[in-house]
Amino acid sequence: MVDLARVQKELHECNRDVQVSGINVTLKGDSLTHLIGTIPGPIGTPYEGGTFKIDITLTDGYPFEPPKMKFATKVWHPNISSQSGAICLDILKDQWSPALTLKTALLSIQALLSAPEPDDPQDAVVAQQYLRDHQTFVGTARYWTETFAKTSTLAADEKIQKLVEMGFPEAQVRSTLEATGWDENMALEKLLSS
């Protein structure tokens, strides 16, 4: 049985300092075992400016078993499958510890975006490009970020405008939207509860 009390505590903890970490975890549906995490692309990498969604499934053994995490946003990275979003990261496998949390696991994934490990690849094609033709790799990764991980500025402006018209200050609307991966409904819920 998943330790639901712990998951609830984690969600609370994580969403308290979302402004600082930029890392956000929300429910996918009604159940506490299917979650969506969002991480901002690290600054100074081809992923900068993107918001990446991670699909999280908690197995019955959690927190004694690692959470199942995969990218829901398409991403071009040696350790992430460009097809399935599967992540090659030791703490999500044999190096998991129950002292880790969803937030620290997401932080580790964010760190993986900054520091690829092409010698232990998940996606061999990306890894070979990373090693042999780094410039093309950076270009492709940046293009994928632009295409899949960014809300177009036009659509973003529209969303901001909508929420500002409801009476929220623009700066808060912007940061909340960024934190929720530009999900209007989630942002509204957050703004109302804050």
Partner: peptide, 14 residues
């Protein structure tokens, strides 16, 4: 195929 090759050649490096 190239995935297999990378697997095999990265084995020694691993």
């Amino acid at each position: 195929e190239s995935a297999a090759a990378a697997q095999a050649s990265s084995f020694m490096e691993n």
